[in-house]
Structures are given as C-alpha cells and as structure tokens.
Design a protein around this nucleic acid. Sequence first.
RNA 1: GCACAUUUAGCUCAGUUGGUAGAGCACUCGCUUGACGUGCGAGUGGUCAGCGGUUCAAGUCCGUUAAUGUGCACCA
Length: 895
Amino acid sequence: MAKELAKQYDPKMVEDRIYKTWLDGKYFHAEINEGKPSYTIVIPPPNITGQLHMGHALDNTLQDILIRFKRMQGFDTLWLPGTDHASIATEAKIVEAMREDGITKDDIGREGFLERAWEWKRTYGGRIIEQLKKLGASCDWDRERFTMDEGCNRAVIEVFVNLYDKGLIYRGARMVNWCPTCGTSISDAEVEYEEKDGNFWHLYYPVKETGEFLELATTRPETMLGDTAVAINADDPRYKHLHGCHVILPLLNKEIPIVCDEHADMEKGTGVVKITPAHDPNDFEVGKRHNLPMVRILTYSGKMTGKTDKDEYDELIKSGKAATDEPEVLDTGKYAGMDVLTARMAILKDLEKGGFLKEIEPITHQVGTCYRCHTAIEPMVSRQWFVKMEPLAKPAIDVVKNGETKFVPERFEKIYFNWMENIKDWCISRQLWWGHRIPAYYCDDCGEIVVSRVEEHTCPKCGGNMTQDPDTLDTWFSSALWPFSTLGWPEKTADLEHFFPTNTLVTGYDIIFFWVARMIFSSCENMGETPFDTVLIHGLVRDAQGRKMSKSLGNGIDPLEIIEKYGADALRFTLATGNSPGNDMRFSDEKVEASRNFANKIWNASRFVLMNLNEKEPVPYIPDNIALEDKWILSKYNNLVKEVTDSLERYELGLAVSKLYDFIWDIFCDWYIEFTKTRLNSEGEEKETAKAVLVYVLSNTLKLLHPFMPFITEEIWQTLPHDGESIMISEWPKFDESLNFEAEETEMQRIMEAIKAIRNRRAEMNVPPSRKAQLNIITDYADTFNYGKQFFVKLASAAEINVGNSFESEGSVAVVTSDATIYMPLADLVDFEAERKRLQKELDVVNKDITMLSNKLANEGFLAKAPAAVIEGEKIKLEKAQEKFTNLTAQLEKL
RNA sequence: GCACAUUUAGCUCAGUUGGUAGAGCACUCGCUUGACGUGCGAGUGGUCAGCGGUUCAAGUCCGUUAAUGUGCACCA
C-alpha cells in the first residue's frame, strides 16, 4: 500500500493504467442475471468519419455518469456502443479523397467504390471509439455494433420488407429536396433554412385571349421554362374576366392555362402566381389538383436540361419504363447545360429584351440548404421511395402522451408533438452507394417490382432478368432501429429479452427529429413498444464567447487536448457542472482549471488521510465512540447521499455534482479535516476513531463522486483500505437513518459560528494568525463551548480559553454571536471608537431582522396560513436575533 | 407570423414542490496553520430585465413589454 502520494495529482500517470484494469476486470461487460433489473443505454452512434468533439464529450460524459451510477446501484447495466456509417458524410469524404487522387466514382464503379469505403471504415471507424475510451466511457465494448454490420443490415431489410408488405413503404414520383452537390435526394428534416438576400423579379405574361399583360413575381425566374399554368384566386375581382383564359409563356411562346386555385393569395403581390409543378412543392400540389402536366428543366446535377436529357426521357417513355407520374423533360435549348444561376441571368436578359421584365425588388428570404454541404436545395419531382408516416406517427405520439416515454426537460415534448403531428412522408431513398441498398428488384423486361429479404435474379412473372434498385437508404433509417437492431432483433435474443426496452436515451436537441422521433415510431411499429423510458436532452457546448463551435470559425476545442492538459476527470467534471438539462453551456479553460483544482483538492485531502494510516487498517467502518464532530460530518454525509442520489435519479446531474463539490471542499476539507487534526496528533482510541470516520466518509464520498470523476476516485479508493476489486463495482451508498444527528449538527453549528465570528473580527483588526488571543466566553451553552475549546485553538488562533458567566470586559474586543459573547483581550489593537461604530452597525442589522421577523409573526394572515414548520422556523430566527440583540446592547453599554 | 427558451454579483452560471439570494472566476486585505499556494482565512459586490397581478409570503406562479437565442411555418 503506497501511502506516500505525490503532492499534485497527475492524471497522466493514472488514467490509461486504470482504464486497462477496468477492461481487464471486464467490469463494463453486461451480464444477464435472471430476475435482476436491467438498465440500458444505447449510445448515439458517432459517424465513422467523426473525431471526438465537445458535443460527443458532453453526451458521453452524461451517459457514463448515469451508467456508472446505475451499475453501482446493482442493476444489470448495459451501455451499448457503436458507430454509424453516415452515408452522405462518409461518401462525400471518400469522393473528396478520391478527387485528390484524380479518381471519380464512375472511374472505379460501385464495387470499387464500396471497397474503398470499407477500407475507410476499417482505417478510421475505430478512431472515435479509442477517443471515447480516453474519456473513461464504460461501454460494453464486447457488444460494439456498426449500423452496416450483418445484424443491423438484416434488421434494416426486415423492416423495409415488413413496411412494404403493409403498404407503409411505397415508391413514387413526388416532390423531393434535391441536393445538386451531394447528388441525392434528402428528407425534409435534412433541409436547413438560411436567410439569404435575393430578389423578386416582376414579370409580365401576356394573356392570349385579351392581349393584356398579367404581372406576377418570382424569386426563381429560371423555372419559368417549366411553367405549365398561371394561377389566380377564383374570388379575385381583378381577374374574374380571365377565368378559362390562357397566357403565352414568354421565351417559349407556349400556351398555358390560367387556373383558379386557393394557392393564389389575393393579398400577396398581384395575386397571380406562376405554376411550376416539377420544381416547387406548392406548385406540385396545384398541378395535381388541376391535372397539369409537369415539365422538368433541371438535371440531377443542377444543370439546365438539354436535348440528350429529353432524348433519354423519350426513350424511356417509348420502352414503357418511365413511370407515368414522372415529369416530362424539356430541351431548354440555348440554356441547356447552364447551372441555375447562369441560366437565371441569361433568361432574365432575354425576358428584359422581350419586355417581359417589369422590375426587380430586392428581398431577403429563407432558402433551403442541405444540412451536410449547405448548397441550396432544388425542389424536384423525382421517383423515390417513401415511408408513409401518418399511421406510424399515431402510436409514437401516444407513447409520449401517456408517459411511457418522457422527455427531460419536458418542454421538448412540445417540439416532438409539433413535428409528429404535422409529419409528411419520409423520403428514404438516396442516390448514393455507401449505405444499405434498397431491397427492391425490377424486371428488365416487364418492369415487375419485387421487394424481398433475399436477392432476386429472376422475374416471378415473366422469368426475365431482375436488377436491384441502385439506391441506398437514408442513414437515419438504420439509426432508427438502433435500440433493438443492436440487441439482436429480428432474432429473439437473450439480450433483447433482458435489455429491451432500453432506459435512457441521451442526446442533443438538434437531433430530436432526425433520430429520436424515428426511433420511437420504428420501435412502436416493430417492437410494439417504446424504445426507452426517458429521453435526456442536453444543449450545445459553445465557446467562451457563446458561439457555436464550428470548423469554419475554427473555435472548436478538442476534448483530447483538454484531457491531455487537465485530465479526463477535469473535463468530465466541467461538462457536468453548471449544466442543466436542455440548456447550452459555455466552455472555457478557466472552468476546466477549476475542475482540475478540485481534483487536486481531493487528491490532497486523501493524501492527508493516508498519511495518518498504518500499513494495515480495517476497511471503512463507523466506530462506537464517535465524537460530536464525527456525528456532525456523518450526518452531513448522510444527507449528501440522499441529495446526490435523488438528483441523479431526477437527471439533475449538475445539481448532484455541485452538492458533491460543496461537501468535499467546504465541509469535509475545510472543516472536518481540520477538526480531526487534534485527535490525529494524539495517541490511542481517539485517534483511531478519527481515522475510522475520515476513511469512512472519504471512501464513501469517493463512491458518490465516482460516476463524475471515475479515474481519480478509483486511484484513491484503491489506496484506501477497501473491500472488493474496484470502486466502479462497489455498492452505491445508501441513506442511513441511524446517521442522522440533528442535535449534534446544531451544536457544531454553534461552535463553527463562533469560530467564523472570531476569524472575522481578527481579520478586520488585522491580527495575524501568529498572534494568539485569549478567549473569555459567556454563553448558555457552556458544555458545547467547553468541548469546542480544542477547535478554537486550532481554527480561531486562540490561546487560553475560559467559559464562564462574567468576565472583565475592559480592554477587550467583543465578538457576538446568537449563542455567545466572546471577549478577546487585545487592548493594544483596539480602537474603541471604531469598535463602537462596528457594534452599532451590527446592531442595526439585527434590529432590521427583528423588525422584519416580528412583523411577520404578528401578521395574522401568516400565522393562519403558513405551514407550522415555517412559523416555527421564523420564531427560532427571531429568538436568535433577539439574543444577539441583547448581547450586542450589553456590549455597547459597556464601551 | 406561431411556439419555446434565456435575462440573477464585473464575467460564467446554480437556485429541487413559493418562506426576502449562492458558487466558480475576477477584485481587496491577511496568512510559510506540519494535505493542498492548483492552497488557507476574511471581505467588497445583487431593487433576481421592466411593468402589472395572484398570495400571509414571489428570483420561484400568472399576465404583459423589451432584448437575445432556437425551432416551426410563410416566403408567387
């Protein structure tokens, strides 16, 4: 047993070594014990492309705190780790890397690309896992999963086929969000709206029948080539005469109808709207209502369509392979091949030339952008796979409504309901290669569609060759199954039986829609129940100025650097402190320094305790003949157990950690350790008692702190006398009624109040600690103060101490508390005039208190309606104030 | 436009069912007190954003205003 510890705590000497002992001990590994309650957390799987950032650090610290707490409480605890294939992000990264080598996806083909992708996964996929270990994460690494591993893949196919069979997955040409950069459709949730400067271009469209010009405005003039109608409101008096008329579409000289539709708002602009069904979500709906043709003018790479595009389409139509619900393709002629902005300028120029451009009105508007690459998304009609959401949303709303799943804090339920109740069908197909390939097969000859768990090569209808859909699924489709796919579903595994449904899901508010909501409805649908009972939502970690940490700002703080500099415990402690659920927090080095200092404080307190121990000390116990101060600390400690446990159970991790901080630093270190010093300097039973209580309180407090600061608590605990292999599998302390010593707490309070008052007095008078003073104490609590003599000597620079009924006050400074008047003969230092002023000032304060309290106690409303305990409390306060008043007046009179 | 959040000491933030406010950092003064100067002791500093209401009692509940932030919607 190494009792000599370094003066300062050095995390680097400790963390990796300790983590290895935990791994070797298999403490993270979850065992199934029949009949034992389980507690499960599934990790929000980080992207394989990812590096640990502060968001991960916070998220995983919170999870580790909960898991370690529950593990010590005796649950069968499983924290299931894993990573996400992150289709768009990963594919983009690999394409980027290939571009540097001058290779494109088409050069190497699908097979070649996937080989590279898997290679990437093998090389970098484990990186973030290693980083989580640095943080101290106690995940069951034996159960690590990957969203594209065999089991998850199977679950994905199973769910897809099931939903398809139920008619909840369908394929069709719908309005989707198209990202020209990523080259894929994305879901509504993946569109982020950004405020951008733009223009309203006011255009004229000539009316065929009347020859007049209809004015309308658009932010996207280039889409006019795809216009197939102009809409007006049926009730609009300005345009009554135009019902059933047509306009001639400028530039194309094409006749398109004027339709009456509610979409046209009389209040807005001129009340006339151009309708481009293939490139605008609202227009798409108008088109459906009026059976308008759809004309596509953009390729999937965001260029204006040309002759080849049109020929391709015509070919498909001829062969019967194009779906009838897909838009026809226009050869935009001179604009073909231009990107959107170039085409816009060219078209505007031509419109202006033709006299069709009335004016340009600058505006700012919200533009939808891709959440991955932030390019403006193009609304396009495209044939994709969708999940029919309405039937799935219903049960998912119910489980939250009826409390089977609770959000912490509760306010996030509103956001959840708001989304779920207005949900639109989910576009799940992506034009990417890295991901789960859609298990749909199409007959090359007759076009038959088969959705199947196994590969289909022959058409069941005509015997022709079948080809699998080239698209992959939205990454979030597989993450949505994470809570059960990782436990073995669709197999009925023992893990699934024991650990599902899981308990707490910890995540940031930014992925409630992407992930949390989808897990809930997926679980309701496939498992018949909610995937977790609690969703603990945390906020963002921002920089010291409150800005979001981002790559472009370069203000990100690397958690690994913080760990390197201050230790993982300090980082964890910082992230857990001053953080209330759902709120953002600011991160700064100063905060980590404070945490580091706290770790050092614990280290040194422990060093002190260890210094006083012999080679063989008994494991922590409470001796029989404990002293007043022992009862005081035990009572305080007991209360701490209750508060920390309650706070953790209510997910108030920040509150729990600050209680621990206060107890350890203020109560244990600043007071109790000091109280024990006299006894530790003695020999015999007294010393043994002090040691035992020190070890007991320290050791158990370390247990309470362990979930927050796992490394240092383990390191110290191992050095202290202990039972068992590791603090992380030791038993969580329980509140113990027999450790409640209220009377003794009050007694110690009297002594401590006096010590503080004396210190205060001496500091005001600039008496150095080296100058010891005699204390003459008049009090009604003679026994307590006689007992307290030892502490006055040690903590209040006292020399000789007398407790009695009256003393000569001449030439003394008086220190007045509600329990005692203490004279310090420091005649040479006393300024009597100042002394009088000070006493008067103190008296004023007490007087004010007395007035306030007696008014309150004279208030009939208060007496009639306030709870008895509160009234009693106020009475005691008043008594104390009055006692102090008496003591003070006596003093003043004597001066 | 709708909703939600935030507004407490110079700074960053706690404040658990309503009982007249706390911490860390910063600042001031003092301290080689044999665990720790990454420390110890003492102190300065707040009409808890404004207004109104409920209540015996409001930082805490309700309404309202303002500022800031976020989500959703609109955006021809």
